[in-house]
Amino acid sequence: MTLPPSIPPMGQRDKLLEMSNVDKVFGGTVVALKDMNLTVNQGDFISLLGPSGCGKSTALRLISGLMRPTSGHINWEGGQKTGDLGVVFQEPTLMPWATVEQNVWLPFRLRGKSIRDVQDEIMWALKMVGLEKFQKSYPRELSGGMKMRVSIARSLVTEPRLILMDEPFAALDEITRHKLNNDLLELRDKLKCTVIFVTHSVFESVFLSDRIVVMAARPGRVSSEVTVDAPYPRTEEFRTSAEYAELCRKASDALHGAMNEHGTRASA
């Protein structure tokens, strides 16, 4: 729970993970991801932005180790250990039979630690997402946004080096989504964590990230990268600023560029 003092500016960050020339082919014919190169640095907030079928989720599954690349390499600086990775899915993905604290306990439980030994860590993670009063509740007693917070607490509890988020707020209403966006940035500011965030939303990606990796479909590939150099902390004022609008336009242009690139059909 010791945190580095602050995230250094982009360009001065230490490397955390590198994807080099990664291809993923399904069934010998469907190219889900083609020649992806991505360097993730410590403290980066990277959004993977793109239309459906652009390989965002495939990239996430490759990084999480759930799939192996057909060719190419994914290398962690200093090797990868269990607990280095936290994952948040599109659904909260909680175990309905377990209380909030038992759900957050899961990563430790699977390493053979009793809930008493990690009580402090669990409470810390719940406090981080503002749910310390709900430790004994069952998921069904919580709202959609609160369930998502539990899911985020579970991904934080091991203090991972990298958190992967696969469209975590896509199923929430806009007001809840904005609130969780704000809270996520606050969390990131406190924890200095590294995040890769998959999203469909230009606005969300600009608000959250300092790097937007724009992807194109058929075959899934990286099309361009947009740097969001607006300073953190970003607040509700930022959301309505001219700077934000301008950045959104830039990201939106990049996305449209990706969708019109050669090799992409004029659909979606």
Binding site: G83, L85, V87, L110, R111
Partner: peptide, 29 residues
């Protein structure tokens, strides 16, 4: 079992026995 939960167990390096006990048996109850 929920396939995302299965993935999560895999990411956290769950053993077959842990998956059975903590995930599959409660789901099957």
């Amino acid at each position: 079992t929920d396939h995302n939960l299965r993935d999560l167990y895999k990411i956290y390096g769950a053993t077959r026995w842990q998956r059975l006990r903590y995930l599959q048996l409660p789901t099957a109850l």
